Computed example of a mutant assay.
Amino acid sequence: MIITTSRKPSQRTRSLANDLSKVFNIKTVNRGKTSASELIEKYKNFVVIEELKGNPNKLKIYDVENNKVLSVIMAIKLQREIISEKVEIQNTIVYDFEDNCKEFRKLFTKFLFNNLKKPIYAINTNKKDNTEYTLLKFNKGCEGVHFLDFYNVNDSENVHIGPKLKITGHKIFDIFEEEE
């Protein structure tokens, strides 16, 4: 799995790609003139960050084998806007989805988590290899808005490290189907 951006990305979009790349331990690929069809031919799973007016606004997670794309509409706050110092990302990822976010848990597991090389576990399992990990906290706000936050967790504290994704909508569609 790789992460890339739309063509000619803004600095904020490149920063989000780097933030997510560090957290999920996936390679960032500079898109350049590479077409979507070339990405589809080369990778069976990949993430594309699209932007609107210079700001990342869509995360598209491609599952080429099943001909599906999960498109997530979002607003973001970058890691550098949340914490000013360099962040050391933990080796293990643990996710915590509130009960009212079961649909997103299924979608993120199917499209993203199952395709990561880095170990990722639900918070209620005992599979964490130690007490230090990166926590993905997914919760529901009001009016159908969802939030995905990233924390470094150790014995003494939870540190919000970002990025923060405010998810306002999502859609699943076929890869070769035009998105409405």
Rank of each mutant, 00 (worst) to 15 (best):
I26D: 00
I26W: 05
K27M: 07
N30K: 11
K33G: 15
S35V: 13
L39H: 04
L39N: 03
E41Q: 15
K44W: 00
K44L: 04
V48F: 00
K53M: 13
G54S: 08
G54A: 09
N55F: 14
L59I: 15
L59P: 06
N67E: 09
V69G: 08
S71R: 12
I73F: 15
I73V: 14
M74G: 03
A75F: 15
K77Y: 09
K77V: 14
K77Q: 14
Q79L: 10
E81V: 15
I83N: 11
Q90F: 11
N91E: 14
I93D: 02
V94T: 08
D99K: 09
C101I: 07
K102R: 13
F104S: 13
F108N: 04
K110D: 15
K118C: 00
I120T: 00
I120E: 01
Y121W: 06
N124I: 02
T125S: 07
T125V: 01
N126W: 04
N126A: 05
Y133N: 07
K137E: 08
F138D: 04
G144N: 06
V145S: 05
E157A: 02
N158W: 09
N158L: 08
I161H: 02
P163V: 08
K166M: 12
K166V: 10
T168E: 09
H170Y: 13
K171I: 10
